[in-house]
Design a protein around this nucleic acid. Structure first.
Ligand SMILES: [Mn+2]
Ligand SMILES: [Mn+2]
Ligand SMILES: [Mn+2]
Ligand SMILES: [Mn+2]
Lengths: 218, 218
DNA sequence: ACTTATTTTTAGCCTTGTCTAAAATTTAAT
DNA sequence: ATTAAATTTTAGACAAGGCTAAAAATAAGT
């Protein structure tokens, strides 16, 4: 039986290691998990013992196939629950993450598959992140950061990089949601700010904003 | 912050102590929790420290008002989730308990209130048990055991005492569900078996069955 | 190449929740 | 009223998951 803590470590390694491939450092994990490097070393040993990660002292850690699938399944559950909270329980997209962090650890294959069906097999969560299938796979959509678009480009918002409550509520305030059409009116080279057209109004946004909005060019 | 384990102990004490009133023995808790008396003593001390139970050495334990409310809230969550699983995710009534044991520990007031609304404020779970409100209260319906009914009585099944998978599947097999009309055709004094009329057929049931079916006489 | 800085691991300790075995207390039986 | 039986608590141990401080290994700087 895998513990909540083990699942959280696997998820962190998955994200840090670009979906399970790259070597991840002990400190990077400690940072992400908000814990100490010594605690990470201890846990990595347990995960290696269970063959969920491959670990060589001082060199770093990667997920095994078994670890990758476990991590992807936790992420699948997290994102499906986020969809449930927004679509069925009227949560706002900035309120779901904390609850999903708990729900993602519920163990029941039937539960998650029925939930998936109940939600009509969503492909993305409320923040635009893809939902892995049962095998832990998902097609990666070609999204790009709004910051990288040229002047006069038309695009549609399809996701957020930063999904903090503060950023999401900023977007709410300015009527930017997934699916919202955006046009780049101008870019300021000095501070990388942008003037965009959104929801019938023009809006000046900082590079912090444009660097955290994923869009699909039209 | 209250732990999963603490919540489970409170729930056990709540059930054993008739909703929080009576004094509960250490052994009774150990039995119900499938643990050892020494572990119970340790935990009781922690709960007493947190003022969730009142405890005097060798005498037994009762819930405080704070403990009673905490226990009732966990039970509220458990039963709401059971309704969700049956009503929305097509679980059978014998499949929900294990998953609800996990879901009942999720911490989010908004989650449980929105779930309650989404389910349209159900009053009973799939086994006929009442769902406490936010204050931990519920009106107790006057149900009685089928075993106690006299010959020729008409009644409706409104709950199960034993909610084990085995018993529930036995009921499924014989088309007995919540709401099903039952008539007592005869009672055998020798072994307390009964012949009943249900779903258009006559059926002989043992005292193990009639002692575990709650009904409302018509 | 050698020294310094950074990263990582080890060693030892703590808390939570569990256990077994022994001691203390209460209850039951003569 | 004693003695025996059952219940409950204490003492001491352990595994999981965390911590701090010190040691070891790797990486960087001159
Ligand atoms: Mn999230
Ligand atoms: Mn998300
Ligand atoms: Mn249940
Ligand atoms: Mn139930």
């Amino acid at each position: 039986m895998i513990t909540f803590s083990e699942e959280n470590y696997l998820k962190a390694i998955y994200h840090l290691g670009k979906f399970g491939n790259a070597l991840v450092s002990t400190n990077a994990i400690a940072d992400k998990m908000d814990t100490k490097a010594s605690s990470v070393t201890d846990m990595i040993k347990k995960l290696a013992e269970k063959e969920l990660v491959a670990y060589t002292k001082y060199q770093g850690t990667t997920l095994t196939e078994k670890g990758r699938l476990t991590a992807a399944t936790v992420i699948r559950k997290h994102r499906l629950w986020e969809v449930f909270l927004v679509e069925k329980l009227n949560f706002n997209w900035d309120e779901v993450h904390e609850v999903a962090e708990q729900l993602e650890h519920i163990k029941s294959e039937k539960l998650i598959n029925q939930l998936d069906a109940f939600l009509e097999f969503p492909t993305h969560d409320p923040h635009g992140d893809p939902i892995p299938d049962k095998e832990g796979n998902f097609k990666k959509t070609n999204k790009e950061l709004l910051a990288n678009l040229a002047k006069a480009t038309h695009c549609i918002c399809i996701g957020v990089k930063d999904s903090s409550s503060e950023f999401l509520r900023y977007l709410d305030k300015h009527k930017i949601a997934l699916g919202t059409a955006i046009e780049v009116l101008s870019k300021e080279t000095f501070d990388d700010s942008m003037v965009i057209q959104v929801a019938g109004k023009t809006l000046t946004i900082s590079k912090e904003v444009s660097n955290n909005l994923y869009v699909k060019a039209q």
